[in-house]
Amino acid sequence: MSENASGISFIGLGPMGQAMVRTFLDNGHPTTVWNRTAARADGVVASGAVLAGTVAEVLKANELVILSLTDYQAMYDILGQAEDSLSGRVVVNLSSDTPEETRAAAAWLAERGAELVVGGVMVPPELVGKENAYVFYSGPRAVFDAHEPVLKLIGRPDYRGEDHILAQLFYQAQLDIFLTTLSAYMHAVALVGSAGVAAETFQPYAVALFDEMSFFLDGTGRQLDNGDYPGELGNAAMMGATADHIVGASEDAGIDLVLPKAVKAHYDRAIAAGHGKDHWTSLFEVIKKP
């Protein structure tokens, strides 16, 4: 369909988008780009990309259209300018949004003759195309397979299934852990900082704990899938007492209480539901059924 089967059309030239375009160019793929602020294309154009003058032009340039935008509303705002140019295109949307917005986007594109492949890039811009980079994908398998040789250049493709929302869910779930952990680290620094301890002094202890966290996850997937929470070690009552102490220490320190109170609430509800003697993984029962 496109004049050059290995060509790529790319929309969205923030730091992530620019990193991906440079990766495609470095691997010999002609890339046509468009961005609402055209000046952001200057760097990649200097590296060999072609700047399209309009949305219609960038869509018509190639079958494969990759989006790196803030959210799915941005997709509507941009692609809506050239709906007649969407027919026959494969739109790989690497933007973050909710599962329902993702399903709605798939239907919107299908009505205009385009296919949606959903993606979630799991590395920052500086790691795009590097050894540890990986990207979740979901959508029609045949469509994904046809473009996998190009998509793998930005990171190892991890295809999760035909349902469009799966890549979005895996992406959000990973960031759920990531963002919550970063907030917990900030809270912990504030806690010791209330006694005058420098963040730099505490940092090595936090790093050591981060490195050990995988140990605490061993076997938990099986427990959660089976609904079996043997509580010989780390039961909810014991862990809940610790959560309560963290709230008290935070109150004494005069720091923010939102995160520790949220954690304590999980344990309180699990204990109230009869899971006090069960493993801490029993919190899953009150999280999935609030």
Rank of each mutant, 00 (worst) to 15 (best):
D158E: 13
Q203C: 12
L169T: 02
N226T: 10
I246D: 00
E126P: 00
P125D: 02
G120P: 10
L86E: 06
L217T: 07
L67Q: 06
R222D: 04
L69V: 05
V247Y: 05
I271L: 03
M238C: 03
D97F: 05
R160W: 03
F215W: 07
S87Q: 08
V135F: 00
T32Q: 11
G17F: 10
A173K: 03
D268P: 09
G80T: 08
N27T: 12
P204I: 06
A195Y: 13
P30E: 12
L169C: 09
Q81R: 13
F202I: 09
T102Y: 03
R222K: 14
D268Y: 05
E200H: 10
V150L: 10
H279I: 12
G227S: 03
L191F: 01
G155R: 01
L175S: 02
P124N: 15
Q172S: 14
K289T: 11
G113C: 09
G248S: 07
E101M: 10
A52M: 10
V91F: 07
L283E: 08
F216Y: 14
F24G: 04
P15W: 09
L233M: 11
S47H: 15
P140E: 10
G119N: 05
P230G: 10
G219M: 04
A198S: 14
G120V: 02
T37H: 06
D268S: 10
T201F: 07
L151M: 11
S68N: 15
T281Y: 06
A82S: 12
L257G: 11
T37I: 13
G17K: 09
A38C: 07
I246P: 00
